[in-house]
Design a protein around this nucleic acid. Structure first.
Length: 544
RNA sequence: ACCCCUGUAGCUCAGCUGGAUAGAGCGGCGGUUUCCUAAACCGCAGGCCACCCGUUCGAGUCGGGUCAGGGGUACCA
């Protein structure tokens, strides 16, 4: 099975028509009228080639019918006619290229296209969910950026999307933290610390021990409660600082209190999907395609993570979401089959949950990759990273790569405040536009309500118009693939096209009509940049 | 031993349902400012898409194999 996000079952594959107002859908509809049975693919024409969009329809038909592709292409080209298409050209071997009508572009540009592919469906994105036993690490930071951006994108695309953080406060790790703190407390009081083998050795444990002493906490439960809460608060604070808001924080301990764990266990037993072996209770995940069955209750009667995890997903499903998305770190990929098995065991389709694995992050400084072990690395935690670089830069960099890709975080580049840093490149385009609009206002030229768009005839102007219209298509692709980096790439491209335009053509001139048309064009550009940066959770300053 | 991710320009990466002469940023070299922000723009150099086999009219993209790097493989999460 495929764990990364390309095929989003339940919402249709990308080539299927979406309920969206985008240009390539207009083209698809036109072709569909003549070829209702065909699976029509519309893509962008490479730069430097004639036309804006193309289809490979002729190849498909020719291949199936044993005809010559170029003849089929010419036949199709003769057949298709529509006001939005200025010109259809056939290029060897058999591409059919469409050049859009300028009038259509002018008209589309002044139209607000709203993307609604979610149709109000309820979708829950759970991410970060770091154990409350230490600071937020870099991979979790990346997951935070990706998850938060995803929620913003989904909302923009018409979903009712919610962000959730799950806190493992009841398991073995929490107990280990408490014991580690207690040992440090003994040490501070003059005794010898016996930290458990798998316990927590970080410096921060000592700090908590000091706090615990100051509060006079003695028994294990109180120490545990204090330590866990310490990190929950820490995580909440850091997430807020990073600009990530969660709608719901769910505690594992609450799932126990509300009997969800008992309920899940009962359901599994009831369906005869468990058995006992050597004192441990196994869940038959092999029924659902796992390579071996998994233990859910250990021989010493403790629950493994899988049982409360299944209970948690039962809890989520009972809250009536149409779709669940979990974002996990690379070290958790081994859990996928277990949890999907659990969901199916509870009677749901495996499709209701999509699990994204966000790959690891390495920090690169002075051309060298730094290890990020808590012992050696300075950048073990998100807070450490944010001490060094601005939030905008951190978020943008985390969203520059597809999430299934290992990420090398180039700290030197991130620290550069000018030139090469792509964050500022995009922000600068926006600030520049705002500056031009202010300049025009000083000269007494205001943004027009309805500009005379037909004055825009330059190549760079058409490039910008097409970019702006492409925005909803990019958003649609990004949502479908659950990949925010597509937005990032698009914004860099849009900024580049604006900077090129700026260099070549003056906006504010004595020609008031043309000035107004161009003001309108660049203000639409600015609006698009701002919208896109908001999806990434990156700020958009008016001046730089 | 098994599982996951990855292998495209000097470096970091795009290239989505197979389609045109494989793209961008950074780095390198060379240019651009009496004018709305030079945090910008323009040009040049740089690639046997790890390798082999297969499917196909067509493969960086799909399938099989090999090699290499990273991560994970508890009755931890």
């Amino acid at each position: 099975m495929r764990v990364t996000s390309t095929d989003w079952s339940g919402y249709g594959a990308m080539h299927r028509p979406w309920n969206t107002e985008v240009i390539r859908e207009d083209l698809r509809r036109i072709l569909k009228k003549e070829y209702p049975e065909e699976d029509i693919v519309i893509d962008y024409v490479p730069k430097e080639k004639e036309g804006d969009y193309y289809t490979n329809l002729a190849f498909k038909i020719a291949s199936r019918e044993g005809a010559k592709p170029d003849e089929v292409a010419n036949m199709i080209a003769r057949q298709i006619q529509d006001p939005i298409i200025k010109r259809i050209t056939v290029h060897p071997p058999a591409f059919i290229n469409f050049t859009l009508n300028e009038e259509y572009l002018y008209e589309q540009m002044s139209k607000d296209r709203i993307l609604d592919i979610g149709e109000g469906k309820r979708i829950l994105v759970e991410f970060v969910s770091a154990n409350p036993t230490g600071p937020i690490n870099i991979v979790s930071a990346r997951a935070a950026a990706v998850g938060d951006s995803l929620v913003r994108m989904l909302k923009k695309a018409g979903f009712n999307a919610y962000a959730e953080y799950y806190v493992n406060d009841a398991g073995k790790q929490a107990a280990l933290l408490a014991e580690s703190v207690r040992q440090r407390k003994i040490e501070i009081s003059g005794g010898e610390a016996h930290i458990p083998e798998n316990g927590y050795h970080g410096e921060y444990v000592k700090e908590i021990a000091v706090e615990v002493i100051a509060r006079g906490l003695e028994n294990q439960d109180d120490i545990k409660k204090y330590s866990i809460e310490y990190f929950i608060k820490d995580h909440q604070r850091v997430m807020r600082r990073f600009g990530v808001e969660f709608d719901v924080w769910t505690l594992e301990s609450d799932l126990y209190r509300q009997k969800y764990v008992d309920k899940a266990l009962g359901l599994l037993k009831e369906k005869n999907l468990t058995y006992t072996e050597e004192g441990a209770l196994f869940f038959r995940t092999t029924t659902f395609g796992d390579d071996k069955d998994r233990v859910i209750v250990t021989s010493d009667q403790r629950n493994t993570y899988l049982l409360p995890d299944i209970a948690y997903h039962l809890n989520k499903l009972e809250r009536n979401y149409d779709q669940l998305i979990d974002i996990w770190g690379p070290d958790h990929h081994g859990r996928i089959k277990g949890i999907l098995g659990g969901i199916q065991a509870l009677g749901f389709s495996a499709d209701v949950l999509r699990i994204m694995i966000v790959q690891e992050v390495k920090i690169k400084e002075h051309g060298k990759l730094m290890t990020m072990s808590k012992r050696a690395g300075t950048f073990a935690s998100l807070s450490d990273l944010l001490e060094k670089i601005p939030i905008d830069v951190a978020r943008f960099f985390f969203l520059m790569r597809s999430s299934s890709q290992h990420l090398d975080f180039d700290l030197d580049l991130a620290l550069k405040q000018s030139d090469e840093n792509p964050v500022y490149y995009v922000q600068y385009a926006y600030a520049r536009i705002k500056s031009i609009i202010r300049f025009a206002a000083q000269k007494g030229i205001d943004l027009p309500e309805k500009p005379n768009a037909s004055l825009l005839k330059q190549e760079e102007e058409f490039d910008l118009m097409k970019d702006i219209l492409k925005y909803t298509e990019v958003l649609s692709d990004a949502v479908h693939n659950l990949e925010p980096y597509m937005i990032t790439y698009y914004l860099i491209e849009l900024a580049r096209d604006f900077h090129s335009f700026y260099q070549k053509h003056r906006v504010v001139t004595d020609d008031t009509q043309l000035t107004q048309s161009r003001l309108y064009l660049i203000s639409r550009t600015a609006q698009t940049i701002k919208d896109g940066l908001e999806l990434l959770g990156v700020s958009c300053p008016e001046e730089m």
